[in-house]
Amino acid sequence: AAVDEILTGRENLILVARLRHLNNPGQIADDLLARFSLTDAGGRKVATYSGGMRRRLDIAMSLIGHPPVIFLDEPTTGLDPQARLEVWQAVQDLAAGGTTVLLTTQYLDEAEQLADRIAILHQGRILVNGTLAELKQLLPPAKVEYIEKQPTLEDVFLSLVGTKAQGQPR
């Protein structure tokens, strides 16, 4: 995350708003802190933030000035499952709000959950691109098999911390 750890979350946001010569940087910071569920942490130094909080602050900073396009490079790398879901929700909210999000990821499940269109790169070249449905059509039809599915370690973790809500992406 491209945040200054010496500053508070609010100070980081105000700094970027001032650098972009926007009016009322304090209000912009407060609005973004609320939007990304960081209001309570806004007065703390970023050095005390968790990885997920830093990523959300980083995304919030990139939204200052309402850019129509935002680039996110591996936004969930190194995050715990709960923080990863929080970043996924932030990305989904951005896209739903009309922001074009260009996202790079090595996590294919992340691409499946978040992307409208997917480009598969290999050795620096785009091999194929399209919607998830279009890419799946490149393979033979699925063979139906019945298996018993055991809970994953992620299911156990999210059950224990109590953050897995109905309808949330896994």
Rank of each mutant, 00 (worst) to 15 (best):
E112H: 06
D80C: 00
Q92D: 10
P75G: 11
R54V: 09
L33M: 14
M53F: 07
R20F: 07
D93W: 02
V16F: 09
N12S: 09
G97C: 08
T104I: 11
I118R: 01
R18E: 15
L33I: 11
L13C: 01
G78T: 14
G42R: 11
E74P: 11
R18S: 03
G78V: 09
R125G: 01
E112L: 03
A96R: 15
R54M: 05
L63P: 10
T48M: 05
T105H: 04
R55H: 07
P25E: 05
Y49K: 03
A83S: 15
R55N: 10
Q123A: 15
E86G: 13
R55G: 11
L33Q: 10
G9D: 07
T76H: 02
I120C: 05
L38C: 12
L121R: 04
L114T: 00
E112A: 12
P68C: 07
A47Y: 04
L79M: 08
S50A: 11
V101S: 06
Q27V: 08
H21E: 13
H66A: 12
A95Q: 11
T8Q: 04
F36I: 03
A95M: 05
A60L: 02
N12K: 08
P67D: 06
I118S: 02
Q92Y: 00
D58W: 03
I14N: 02
A115M: 12
E112V: 11
D30C: 04
G26R: 01
A34Y: 01
L32M: 01
I120F: 15
A115V: 10
V69Y: 12
G9C: 07
